[in-house]
């Protein structure tokens, strides 16, 4: 299922953003990492999070540590997961009526 490292695409399984996709941009220590959605794509803002709240997916992006949201977004666009992310985003916005 893949190991948690910089560039790893994960699903958040707890908290407000449970069920959403995020990308690890920095490993803080063996318990905490910094992730970003990026916010306008998956609604997950750049934040520190415990790895227990993440499930790694078998997709890894080629991004430098501490990459900007733009870099992450462009890297995500190449993956075959990207269309699904747009679909999820559209579904969320339709339900909430405003960008979630």
């Amino acid at each position: 299922m893949g190991v948690i490292e910089v560039g790893r695409v994960c699903r958040k399984i707890a908290g407000r953003e449970a069920g959403r996709i995020c990308v690890v941009v920095r490993v803080i220590d063996d318990n905490f990492v910094e992730i970003t959605g990026p916010k306008d794509l998956t609604g997950v803002r750049r934040r520190r999070v415990n790895v227990k709240h993440l499930v790694p997916l078998p997709i890894k992006l080629d991004i430098p540590e501490g990459a900007s949201d733009e870099e992450v977004l462009n890297a995500l666009k190449e993956t075959d997961l990207y269309p699904k992310l747009l679909e999820e985003k559209e579904k969320r916005e339709r339900r909430k009526g405003k960008p979630a």
Partner: peptide, 18 residues
């Protein structure tokens, strides 16, 4: 329970991707 369900769903998604 939410965590368990989300975990199962994510694992299944991972398997499908693989």
């Amino acid at each position: 329970c939410l965590r368990e369900l989300m975990l199962a769903r994510a694992i299944e998604e991972g398997m499908a991707l693989l």
